[in-house]
């Protein structure tokens, strides 16, 4: 309770003091002087939100000032990202980012080019999508699925959680590499998609290992293919081959990280990087994150920024070649 009380007082001084303190130059010695606002572009209670809460607690303890989470969900994380981009670059506003920040600008649907408008701080987790099917379907391996799809074009329907996101890109790459025709059915959320998959209304879908874990454990779903660059270390997915292993040129991963608006003073960046690095090295944090089902994979600011740049180039090529860009654009006239 005392912790809460101090947070609260601090929150007030943050809000009311913001305009006065902002004018003062911030130096590494006295950063942070007040609590730091963390924009989470997802609703409270979701996996990204809980990740942020685990992380901010640890980082707050290291910086000596609390980090206060503000959920700004909407428009497929773009509402929160837009707010982060236009926040004052003083280190007192940072935010969680997900791999959609690289994809959305490619389709021309976002207000900003997020990879260039944001300052990377740290990558937190990585989750490769896996292709799964219901346990009672006839396809035991990815090969059998591909063979079936070859023999019966357009008969396999796969679920996606939105055109052009990672759940769409993975299977589209696979279809192109294997020369098969499969059709995407779009759902408005992972839960609904999972229901349709378990009920056998769609044949396969490619989604996060986190969502599928309990159902694979219970024997209701069967993993066929891993879209990550290498096999997962999780015993549950250890035997699932990657697409590359089977000779299909398909690779996509989802990740979560922390970013700030562009233009932070160098010493503030250094201080933030250091705090997140220390927090990610903390066993307790790593355990809490992996309990959620995702793999904690830390990348420092430089590595994370490099990932943004390389993925932007790579995914631009992928969405153009696979025709996904065309599909997304064709919704407009």
């Amino acid at each position: 309770m005392t912790y809460l009380a101090s947070t609260r007082r601090a929150a007030f001084s943050a809000i009311f003091g913001a305009s006065f303190f902002a004018a003062l130059p911030a130096t590494a010695q006295d950063f942070p002087q007040r609590p730091i606002r963390v924009i989470v572009p997802c609703p409270a209670g979701g996996a990204t939100d809980i990740m942020a809460r685990i992380l901010t607690k640890a980082v707050g303890a290291r910086l000596g000032k609390p980090l206060i989470i503000e959920n700004k969900p909407g428009a497929g994380t773009m509402t929160g990202l837009n707010e982060l981009v236009s926040a004052r670059p003083d280190g007192y506003t940072i935010g969680m980012v997900t791999s959609t920040m690289v994809l959305q600008p490619l389709y021309g649907s976002s207000r900003h080019e997020y990879p260039t408008a944001l300052q990377p701080i740290a990558q937190v987790t990585v989750t490769p999508p896996v292709l799964v099917t219901g346990a009672d379907t006839q396809w035991k391996t990815a090969r059998e699925l591909v063979d079936f799809a070859k023999a019966n074009p357009k008969s396999i329907k796969y679920g996606i959680t939105g055109f052009g996101n990672s759940s769409h890109i993975g299977p589209t790459q696979l279809a192109r590499a294997a020369g098969i025709e499969i059709e995407a059915v779009s759902f408005d959320g992972g839960g609904v998609l999972l229901t349709a998959l378990l009920g056998g209304h769609i044949a396969v879908s490619a989604g996060s290992t986190v969502d599928y874990k309990p159902h694979i454990e219970a024997g209701k779903l069967r993993p066929l293919l891993n879209f990550g660059p290498a096999r997962s270390e999780d015993p549950l997915y250890k035997d699932v081959p990657t697409a590359k292993e089977l000779g299909y040129d398909a690779e996509i991963v989802s990740w979560t990280g922390v970013a700030a608006p562009k233009g932070l003073p160098a010493d503030v960046i250094a201080k933030l990087n250091e705090a997140f690095k220390a927090a990610m090295a903390d066993r307790e944090v790593a355990d809490a994150l992996s309990k959620l089902g995702s793999e904690p994979v830390y990348l420092d600011a430089e590595g994370f920024g490099a990932r943004w740049a390389s993925e932007t180039v790579k995914l631009r090529q992928v969405v153009t070649e696979t025709g996904i860009l065309e599909i997304v654009k064709s919704q407009r006239q």
């Binding site: 609703p43 409270a44 209670g45 979701g46 996996a47 939100d49 809980i50 839960g191 999972l194 229901t195 378990l198 986190v210 874990k213 309990p214 159902h215 454990e217 219970a218 209701k220 809490a288 309990k291 959620l292 089902g293």
Partner: peptide, 28 residues
């Protein structure tokens, strides 16, 4: 019994499990 949240409220109840590293599924 299935680990499927059908609405927003149920999804939030699920986060109560998630925090403690439990994902409710058919085997819960």
């Amino acid at each position: 019994s299935l680990g499927l949240p059908f609405n927003a409220g149920a999804a939030l109840l699920l986060s109560g499990f998630l925090i403690h590293g439990i994902t409710p599924g058919p085997d819960l």
